[in-house]
Nucleic acid binder design. Sequence first.
DNA 1: GGGGGAACT
DNA 2: TGAGTTCCCCC
Length: 693
Amino acid sequence: MSSPPPFIASSPITPSTTRRRKSAFTYKHLSQLSLSSTTCPLHIIAHIDLDAFYAQCEMVRLGVPTDQPLAVQQWQGLIAINYPARAFGLSRHVTVTEAQKLCPSLITQHVATWKEGDEKWAYHEDAFKNIHTHKVSLDPYRLESRKILATIKEFLPAPPVQRVEKASIDEVFLDLSAQVHGILLERYPELNGPAPYDDPTEPLPRPPTTALDWATDALVDLDDAETEDDDPDWDDIVMQIASEIVRDVRAKIYEKLKYTCSAGISRNKMLAKLGSGHKKPNQQTVIRNRAVQQFLSGFKFTKIRNLGGKLGDEVVAAFNTDTVKELLEVPVDQLKRQLGDDTGSWLYSIIRGEDHSEVNSRTQIKSMLSAKSFRPSINTFEQAVRWLRIFVADIYSRLVEEGVLENKRRPKTINLHHRQGAQTRSKQAPIPMGKAISEELLFDAAKNLLAQVVVDGRAWPCANLSLSVGGFEDGITGNKGIGGFLVRGEEAKAMNSTVNRETGGDNMVDTPPPGKRRKVEEGGITRFFGMRQESTGATDREEEGMESPYQTDAQEGVEQDAFEPPPSAQRGDMGKQKAVSEEEEEEEEEEKNEEDEHERYRDAAPTHALQQASIEQYFCARCNKSLPEYERSEHDDWHFAKDLLEEERQASTPVPPRPPSKPPAQHKGKGRGRPAGGTLGRAEKGQRKLAFG
DNA sequence: GGGGGAACT
DNA sequence: TGAGTTCCCCC
């Protein structure tokens, strides 16, 4: 970045007595800066990260002195530990009792929980004893997060100069380019003039050589070829201005809300993020362009975003190192060959500090989830429905908090995730438009999704359940910043494109971040990495159909009237029931999971009963069939689920079904509407049926 | 648009 | 470890 520009014949003659070179940056670069162009070499990003956020929230809430060790407890574990407590060697892996031993003065504050029947979460005494009846609520932290975000946005110039991306509950990215551009022109009027000869490729005048005052910023060591004596160029000035802004933002957050945070300032998101983690707590780190290589070389590449998981492991395995330094020696071609073209070139760039991803102006939430893990697993529809009620209360209250009900910013879909052993499946449905969103509406929809999962089979024992709503983004609130108008597909493209929107002139070639699934050609054989070829829901049903002589219902959305017993009835007999997995495709991992699943299932079934020669039988009058007694409740649940869905089907089908020859015209959003009576009927039925559990 | 999964905090 | 959010891919 600070290398001298190539000699340009038309540029003004520089007296040979002048020691100083031209700036490496041009008038074009300067104007790109005002547009927050991701390809602009002066582009400037900050990442702000709250220190031990949940712990700080509790400290602020409880008015605890800042040097008091405190940890946030969730059931038997610790999910956040403040810095005073870390001094005692506490980490997230330590149990509550171990922590108390290591640090007797430690405050362990349990997270807020939500109790069945309550209309709000609360901080309960001895909450950790209530794991079987309460669910965790992180709402207090969301509320604090929102305050902090509001403070930041209030402090910065209005959009479109302001670009703030909420990256998580305790992190934001700021694109400070446009704001810094403005300050730059104010402070250095010599930059205001038109480019000499009206040529935007003319280099800028050099900035004054006055030593930069980096205040108390942590500065990363310079690259080998650079020395502190080198005159600063505009990129250094930009960094310094950005650093001032970040310092002020942090001061404002502390002043208003008493939260400390750490920050990283650098030329792109990846470096800024790495920088914010470099020195904590309550510090900020600037990574100048001339320090990037030195800085990055000290890292394990698994610390870089997107390389912290399976992809990172693969890279480690492929090149037998986990350090950036060593990976830098691998040529692009080899990276491409072993990881695929896209991932290879992405990796090549990223370890050289190149990242052109955009800061998306986005501070609003896109989805909302409420979840619970069950240990031990739950086994009946009734149990599951009781949790659904809590989830719905949670989500509904959060919808109200968001102001989404007034704002018309309503979610469009509702989604249920379900885990049984290694299997995870989900069902989603549209939230009917045109009606007000109510708890009953959501609860009804959630129950319905659960019924779908149950009818699909293999629902119990259930180890995890989660309900979410999403699809908020099409709301009425028009605050779309620059780029906010992009639709999904284009957004992804724009994020990774280095071809500048306006100038399109740079020669840099960008590569997309790795997809989750990558193709690698190897001697004519194509292999896929990164995604297990799990059976889809549809495939599952097909497999079941193959497996079960009974199972013929509800395949591929074809509604059938025949009620059949659940596939689970087949699993009771003593034959080996491995047919499903044996059809399955290879991969040791896969097999292990399958194995695991069967293991879990078998554990859940009464083994002693399986071993008896004669099993107590239950006769189901609805199917006219008998099945093992221990499957009775699951079987009943299945009928219940089926009934629920059948009611739904009838309620949503206006009186006489029309002949298929002439399908009715589509009334968007209205065709699916159901009379209120149907809803009530189902609710009543639910109450009644749930009594049997 | 539905469903599965990875990655991250 | 558990809860929560976003992004991406395939069909």
